[in-house]
């Protein structure tokens, strides 16, 4: 027969003792809720960018893009999204980055913004690949630096690290407004 401690756990029952310690440890863990923001991280050539998740309605595989005459070269054409007709913009052209050659990883982000006068604006944005969709802790996002290329100034809302590589967070509302006004 073994003796019992005050807590009722047998001194000769090491497993029960360990489990008891674990339970105590778990209770000491304090949950800290850090504010996060969902981001869609994507690449144009070898550079990483991100849009807020709320601005990306869908990620589509690269499909047939139909040319429409009279559009600037940065507006590649239109696609059929389940009966809706959506424009497709070559995002790299607006950011001053050359696109990589087409590959199976290329995708079209279906971007959406409130637009001016609360009229929603929607357009496809061609990217070379989608890296990840994840929650980023807001505190880890640093303000954009003054050394960013000119095309990115005013569009970049912050910079954060993803697998050791810098990711530039972009303002889609601003991008669409600038494009609509032919500022890009």
């Amino acid at each position: 027969m073994s003796t019992s401690t005050e807590s009722g756990i047998s001194e000769k029952d090491p497993l029960a003792s360990v489990l008891e310690q674990r339970r105590d440890a778990d209770q000491r863990i304090v949950e800290v809720e850090a504010a996060t923001v969902k981001c869609v991280i994507f690449a144009i050539d070898d550079r990483l960018f991100a849009f807020p998740g709320g601005n990306v309605a869908e990620i589509l595989p690269l499909t047939t893009i139909h040319f429409v005459p009279g559009c600037p070269s940065s507006l590649e054409g239109v696609i059929n999204v389940r009966g809706d007709i959506t424009s497709v913009i070559r995002l790299g052209d607006l950011l001053g980055c050359a696109h990589a050659p087409d590959s199976r990883r290329a995708a079209i982000l279906l971007g959406q913004s409130r637009g001016t006068d609360d009229v929603p604006m929607r357009s496809g944005l061609r990217v070379d690949r989608v890296e990840d969709v994840l929650d980023i802790i807001e505190e880890s996002i640093r303000p954009p630096t003054d050394t960013l290329p000119e095309q990115l100034r005013g569009l970049a809302t912050g910079i954060f690290q993803h697998h050791g590589q810098a990711v530039i967070a972009l303002d889609l509302e601003r991008l669409f407004q600038d494009y609509r006004c032919a500022l890009r």
Partner: peptide, 23 residues
Amino acid sequence: PPLLAARQSLACVRALAYIGHPP
């Protein structure tokens, strides 16, 4: 589409339609 309409240089391009089913 709104951005295409805003940047369209040809006033004669007025509307679009898809017929058939992808692809």
